[in-house]
Amino acid sequence: MIYSLCLILIGIGLYGILTKRNIVKIIIGFVIMEAGVHLLLILIGYRMQGEAPILQPGMKLSEFITRAVDPLPQALTLTSIVIGLGVLALMIAIAIRLYERYKTFDITEMRRLKG
């Protein structure tokens, strides 16, 4: 059930990308889609009664092995979040240039892009 809710979040982002005309709204849809994907990745690695994969002094390793959640999806999600910020900066730069050229954020008025 909980995975389907993530899927709804991804679907909402896709809907925003495909149907909106304002370029900032398209970027917002992109960010929402990213949030859904990250949440799905973390949910896959979760273990019931799990705790963070961080060892503290005095912890028993045998007990830790049975309780720690999966560190691998967490590490890859961490890189993905920072890449998302960089890509967002690139998209915003392109949006600024388009605004300067056409004086609008509306993509249907940017006629030169239509080949």
């Binding site: 990250h38 979760y46 705790e51 963070a52 959640v69 999600t77 979040i81 920072v82």
Partner: peptide, 11 residues
């Protein structure tokens, strides 16, 4: 809640 304080911090 899902045991990922690293990710929560960065997010």
């Amino acid at each position: 809640f899902l045991g990922a304080p690293d990710i929560a911090f960065t997010q």
